[in-house]
Design a protein around this nucleic acid. Structure first.
Length: 172
DNA sequence: TCGACGATTGCC
DNA sequence: GCAATCGTCGAG
């Protein structure tokens, strides 16, 4: 069953760990379906979070994070990799969950490459999209064991924010 | 308009 | 250890 708007409309620190074990689904143009079991995510929470892109305020790139939950936020990193996020929370408060890894494919850049993401996915509504969404996974326990750690690659955000354990890894 | 830099990856 | 590669954003 596809995750609802309601699911994504909560605080990112609630939503992020609950995405562990869920199934990321990509339907390609030729009809082929790719399913990945999410096992690693990170939370990015508000303008005050110096590790969050929205700490720079509302810009063309961060705009979608200010919208309602359940939307796709993709961006190009190092000119090579499209990283995948889903917005969470309520209109006006910028939040997103970065999909860092899955059981089948590890690494945020590799996920984007496998899903053939590009800028056309920016703002896509995962609640109604026919090419990218997330489903519940009936074959896994509802409450998987979770390990937390600091988020990866945001040392520039300073100790206060880089030190927060907002990376969640599921032992599935 | 220009230049620095990045929520990464893979090869030397 | 470091290059690849380019969109974004702040400075000028």
């Amino acid at each position: 069953m596809r995750l609802s708007r309601h699911f994504f409309s909560r605080d990112v620190l609630e939503v992020a760990p609950e995405l562990l074990g869920k199934t990321l689904v990509r339907r390609f143009e030729n009809g082929e379906i790719l399913r990945l079991t999410i096992n690693e995510v990170e939370a990015y929470r508000g303008e005050e979070d110096l590790g969050c892109h929205a700490s720079k305020g509302r810009t063309p790139r961060t705009e979608v994070m200010y919208h309602r939950g359940g939307l796709v936020y993709v961006y190009l990193i190092y000119g090579m990799y499209w990283l995948l996020n889903f917005t969470t929370g309520r209109e006006g408060i910028p939040q997103a969950v970065l999909i860092r890894g899955s059981v089948e494919i590890e690494g945020p850049g590799r996920i984007g490459r496998a899903l053939k993401l590009d800028k056309s996915f920016y703002g896509e509504d995962s609640i109604s999209s026919n090419r990218l969404w997330i489903e519940n996974n009936k074959n896994l326990p509802e409450r998987p064991k979770i390990i937390t750690s600091p988020r990866i690659g945001i040392d520039y955000a300073g100790e206060n924010w880089a030190g927060k354990h907002w990376r969640f890894v599921g032992i599935l």
